[in-house]
Design a protein around this nucleic acid. Sequence first.
DNA 1: TAAAATAGTTTATAAAATAAACCAAAATGT
DNA 2: ACATTTTGGTTTATTTTATAAACTATTTTA
Lengths: 94, 94
Amino acid sequence: MLAELDPLLHSQLRLGIMSILMSVESAEFTFLKEKTNSTAGNLSVQLDKLSEAGYINIEKSFKGKKPLTTCKITKKGIKAFEEYVNALKQYIKP
Amino acid sequence: MLAELDPLLHSQLRLGIMSILMSVESAEFTFLKEKTNSTAGNLSVQLDKLSEAGYINIEKSFKGKKPLTTCKITKKGIKAFEEYVNALKQYIKP
DNA sequence: TAAAATAGTTTATAAAATAAACCAAAATGT
DNA sequence: ACATTTTGGTTTATTTTATAAACTATTTTA
């Protein structure tokens, strides 16, 4: 029987976000938007979901008077990502 | 920029179906149902979608008077699966 | 022979992704 | 100086997907 795939991570955009956050200290909204090629609206929604789940931390501040949203993966997020990758390997190995 | 993930394959159940069909000559409905742990309704719908896309062939016959649904991956399906796996690797490699 | 199981399909509902509309501030053009 | 566009988002509406529920036909079992 095939393993379950964490539905929170099994979404192109959320997986992309998490993949990027696995490889950097932290990332700004605009950086993630560019790297994932997503719209601001969609990105905003999906970041909230990851944050709700405790997979990332979102810090909202200001750079001058412009809003600045900075995201960081949490320990829980790292664990979830690693488990997702392991489960996924079952599906894609030759 | 991260690669696109074929939305037809980026679904747990459809990916599971395709993953199984990559490794066998052909598979019956009931076999797929058990291996993927899905409901008959959901499986039926997702098989139709894969068939619509030309990723699998579905043959409906009878074993006595019981319906027998047999599925086989197509060349197009194999190619799509391989491309999906390649794109996915971008997301999950360390 | 009534009840339950098999092998599905079809339809309805819930959840997700995406798009559109919106807001406030800042930078740019005229 | 002042209208226009751009930046950096959020919120709400729409569309698409996935899932669940209800149904059909036959068959097996009690």
